[in-house]
Design a binder for these strands. Structure first.
Lengths: 135, 135
DNA sequence: TATCTTTACTTGCATTTTGCAAGTGTAAAT
DNA sequence: ATTTACACTTGCAAAATGCAAGTAAAGATA
């Protein structure tokens, strides 16, 4: 599919080349919070991603080793998506986005509760969650 | 211009509604590192943003109180852009993006040096840089 | 004082991406 | 044997992007 055109050597630019759009980080969010998702799970998210866009994003994320496909234990018709280590390592980025948004928007209570945990011990939270996601 | 359509209450989604594209965070990057930029300065960045896209992004960022326009002391023909507190508060996000990218891409030496400083004392770095940017 | 340049945009248009709706193929359930 | 579930693909209209050229105000230069 799309050949990745690198706009510059800047780390921010390189990152955005992969996941700099309105949907990719939402996919990663779902995987961080749910650990594993099927194609259908992503479609259920509140934002309502279109099926073709989802397929395109999943492909780019897979090509860039952010996510990987796994066989679903229950059925051959299902596919499990999960984060690679490279994808899991986006957790600190995801956390800071949440903390920023919490300061400037009103956000759901359950997310607020989670962020309370984060604020108590950020490094510990990241370590524990990373370990959980890797297993 | 564009009316902001909120896709969901998720903090990540709300954030991406504002700066979830390939260019906005590069503008914010330039402002974080240079403190103040003119329109022309943004155009000089290595990635080569188109003038109309730049104008559109600056407008959205201004509408969302991430940046503000200031009179340039040297000339009425110039405009200074700088980050608001809301924009400055994206520094932790920016830092984590850089740290992630450093782990998975090869990045310029000068940026690497800066990240060494960050890693020594992240909280201290953020505090100092925030203070500097606010002044 | 006239004109040339700089600066910050705007405009027109072709190309690309997005989004919606419908369709396809395989696997599982009835 | 037929229907349903699931993971996509396809076609097409609408929107966003990218490029090149243009505009208007301010400042510099002759």
């Amino acid at each position: 599919m799309a050949k990745a055109k690198k706009r510059s050597d800047c780390p921010v630019s390189c990152s955005l080349d992969i996941w700099g759009d309105k949907w990719s980080l939402l996919i990663i969010r779902d995987l961080l919070f749910a650990k594993e998702c099927t194609y259908g799970d992503f479609l259920k998210a509140a934002e309502g991603i279109a099926t073709n866009i989802l397929a395109a994003r999943l492909l780019v994320l897979e090509e860039n080793k952010i996510i990987e496909k796994l066989a679903h234990p229950d059925s051959k018709a299902k596919v499990l998506y999960r984060l690679t280590r490279k994808g899991i390592d986006l957790l600190p980025v995801m956390i800071e986005i949440n903390l920023w948004a919490e300061k400037y928007f009103s956000i759901p209570e359950d997310r607020k509760a989670l962020l309370q945990e984060v604020k108590k011990d950020k490094a510990g939270f990241i370590k524990a969650m990373t370990k959980e996601l890797e297993s």
